[in-house]
Design a protein around this nucleic acid. Structure first.
Ligand SMILES: [Mn+2]
Ligand SMILES: [Mn+2]
Ligand SMILES: [Zn+2]
Ligand SMILES: [Zn+2]
Lengths: 144, 144
DNA sequence: AAAGCACTTGCAACACGGTTGCATTTTAAT
DNA sequence: ATTAAAATGCAACCGTGTTGCAAGTGCTTT
């Protein structure tokens, strides 16, 4: 629970959604910059009596409304993340393998100069893995 | 059935695998440059009485042995493709949305010049979508 | 504050692909 | 042809996605 209830309630109202218990709970866990969670990870943070269908429907609703983005990490795992200022999730992301934050990086793209003659570029889903600035910093401080 | 049985049988022998019916059938459908198929697509090309578990185990075996690569297209669909000269599938691929061929493009990569200060790059699974050279050619000829 | 209605939830149930154990069949080596 | 090892077919189980519907809740209006 990172954000206070007032924030989350008004957030839901802004997006024309009823402020139900589970919706507030889910949002509270996704609140914060770079926070991205698996459906299972969210499920584990919720009270154990939570119905899995309701969680499923909640995440589907959020995704449809564009409130959260569903981002594929590596084919197996997909993470949910509050959309923030971006309408669509069609931009690149950076996934930190240390702190597991997922950060939007719309400036990143594929180097098309190496695309062979005759090939036409259309799109590329892009998730870059590595270590974020904060974690690099920490690591440097420790090893010094 | 693109390749002849001799080729496929020796291919299996080379990789230390028994030349069973279903293995030959699966390989024959994956034979050819750029051919990449979904498990379901393969299943539909096989005789209808084929057991789905056996197909599953066949593809898992091929993947484990490195004979075929399992490549995630867009989070939902993953395609199987004969590995060819590459040991691992950790290089970029180009997916043609017209002819649905999947081509290895190890020369493609992410433009890292835009990676912000302090971020360390580690890896990026990369599938570029677009139109391949052959399909571009055809399209040009038609519209002329 | 209470009522009414639309929306949401909880539950049971089904779909479907992955996965396993095991008895039977097939392959490859002798 | 014999034989041992490997592969297959089948039944069955699991987890996740998905739906229908009855019961419950949130929100607006009075
Ligand atoms: Mn984003
Ligand atoms: Mn490849
Ligand atoms: Zn980090
Ligand atoms: Zn093409």
């Amino acid at each position: 629970m990172v954000a206070n209830n007032k924030d989350i309630s008004s957030f839901l109202k802004t997006h024309g959604l009823a402020g139900t218990i589970i919706r507030k709970q889910v949002l509270s866990h996704l609140w914060g910059d770079g926070v991205a969670l698996t459906q299972k990870e969210i499920e584990e943070k919720l009270p154990p009596e939570t119905d899995r269908v309701t969680l499923y429907r909640t995440l589907r609703l959020f995704t449809e409304k564009g409130i959260v983005h569903k981002i594929v990490l590596n084919g197996e795992t997909q993470k949910f993340k509050i959309a923030g200022r971006f309408r669509k999730s069609d931009h690149a992301h950076f996934y930190c393998t240390k702190c597991h934050k997922l950060l939007c990086m719309p400036q990143l793209d594929v180097d098309l100069s190496d695309l062979p003659e005759g090939f036409q570029f259309s799109s590329a889903r892009l998730v870059v893995e590595g270590i974020c600035d904060t974690c690099s910093q920490k690591n440097q401080t420790q090893t010094q």
